[in-house]
Design a protein around this nucleic acid. Structure first.
Lengths: 270, 270
DNA sequence: GGCAGCGATACCCGGTTGATATCGATACGG
DNA sequence: CCGTATCGATATCAACCGGGTATCGCTGCC
């Protein structure tokens, strides 16, 4: 499965073999055996190009889930003796909520040390590969698919603009006003790639704010960013943007009491 | 992983080896290697008894998820070419909703054949091992953990009693009246075993109703069972029982258009 | 104390997996 | 239009892993 995922991601047997630390021929053979076992073609190969069939695309998604589950199982089993709780959160997010949550949990009887895993984006992945036990994420930007989750609170969204921007003076905006702006910043997809489009590619808040200050980008973001906004930036409410819901999420078969306690404490806030 | 799950479930190397179709010595060796690789003891063995450590319990849960994910991947990949949609539902459940849903979906443009997988109970499992693509399940009896789901409707619960029962004449009941009844029927857990307790063990509706008619059992069930209740049975509303919500659920990384269509049709009902 | 049940150990064998060398096909440049 | 470079497939060999049989050692139990 590792082999197939590598080839499906690289779309190149040589590079995939390299990444796996094996030679190319056994890799070719293994994939061929897999296809035979399943009775389905997973890849279409010409001698110049490799591409996924529909079945291959399905298996790539399923295979990633499998590999994640295996990695998670390994980590969780290994660390069951030394109880620790890893909380994944977005770096630069609402540190106020986080601080309150950590304080409140620490005051609980039986609380254990909480380690923070700050991610640039996409706090889901660490839950699937076992690096984290709980995560704070934000719907609809992050999906809770495959996770158990509880909503903590919702907030409306604001367009963040340089104050030199034509729309900066508006009292309020609508999605239609901003959705087609060519400067709209692009965030990475869960796999780290960017969808094609005109706007600049950013991968963290600092970078984004700098880009906006330079007039190179605009963004639509939750209310929280208004606190501590840089000089020269304005936040204009976008009245019909979907609400952003902050949720606390954990893997469905979590058996940890610490996770349950933390979630209970978090829900006490809402 | 298959090996470990077998041993953890049987708690007996000989029987596990038998079930796996291999001899006992290589099984012992493999488990020992797994423990060494993880650096954690998974099982405590005396020469008379095998039991799970805490780490072992965690790995059992994770391992079942992994094996399910692998089986699901295999099935879904293999059947991607012959589009078919398998819907899991409880046998003896609300066939009215099901009929409406199937009819409405069949009328959709691009609808494909829907195969029905009728389960005695626990319609979740077929989603995890790939035997089904969508399932109708009932919260809180079934959990939607690890699945995407949409609620369809809620209904209140009724105590189903033989009309000779002391409580049969009541206009309404409360949970406190029924929760301690020694005749309260027991349903199997997801793994097929039964929790200990006084009531009879049942595994389908026909059996349950017969037991109730014979005065050997009572049960608390959703409203729907009132339609077509056997002669000699009565349904009394239990006013403070939790509402039962019928939901349609599917695996989180489903890429099937048919599933999306079916869910959309189902949600049109609520 | 002998015996039966069960897991661990010792040892052997065969198939799978990995490495190297080479082939055949295709796109591209001169 | 042909030579060449790139890339996946094939052939062949070696090593290791996973499985089998035989047997040991421990522990309850008549």
């Amino acid at each position: 499965m590792r082999y197939f995922v590598a080839v499906a991601e690289e779309l190149h047997f040589g590079r995939a073999a390299d990444r796996l630390g094996i030679a190319q021929p056994p890799l070719s053979r293994t994939i061929a055996q897999l296809e035979q076992r399943l009775g389905v073609a997973l890849l279409t190969r010409t001698s110049r190009k490799v591409s996924l069939t529909e079945a291959g695309a399905v298996l790539l998604a399923e295979g990633r889930a499998i590999l994640g589950a295996i990695a998670a199982a390994e980590r969780r089993t290994r660390t069951v003796d030394r109880p620790s709780l890893v909380l994944a959160a977005k770096a630069g997010g609402s540190s106020e909520l986080l601080a309150k949550l950590l304080d409140a949990y620490a005051a609980e009887p039986g609380a254990i040390a909480v380690e923070l895993l700050l991610c640039e984006a996409h706090t889901r992945q660490p839950l699937f590969d076992g690096r984290a036990d709980v995560a704070i994420l934000h719907e609809p930007y992050d999906s809770t698919a495959g996770l158990d989750a509880e909503a903590l609170y919702s907030e409306s969204q604001y367009a963040v603009l340089p104050n030199s921007h034509p729309l900066a003076g508006a009292a309020q905006l609508r999605m239609a006003d901003v959705i087609d702006l060519p400067e709209l910043a692009r965030w990475p997809e869960p796999d780290g790639t960017y969808l094609p489009g005109p706007g600049v590619e950013v991968h963290n808040l600092t970078q984004l704010f700098q880009m906006i200050a330079l007039g190179r980008a605009v963004a639509v973001m939750p209310e929280i960013v208004r606190t501590g906004l840089l000089e020269g930036l304005v936040a204009v409410p976008v009245v019909d943007a979907p609400k952003v819901t902050t949720v606390i999420a954990w893997p469905p078969h979590s058996r940890s009491r610490a996770v349950a306690d933390l979630v209970r404490v978090a829900m006490g806030f809402s």
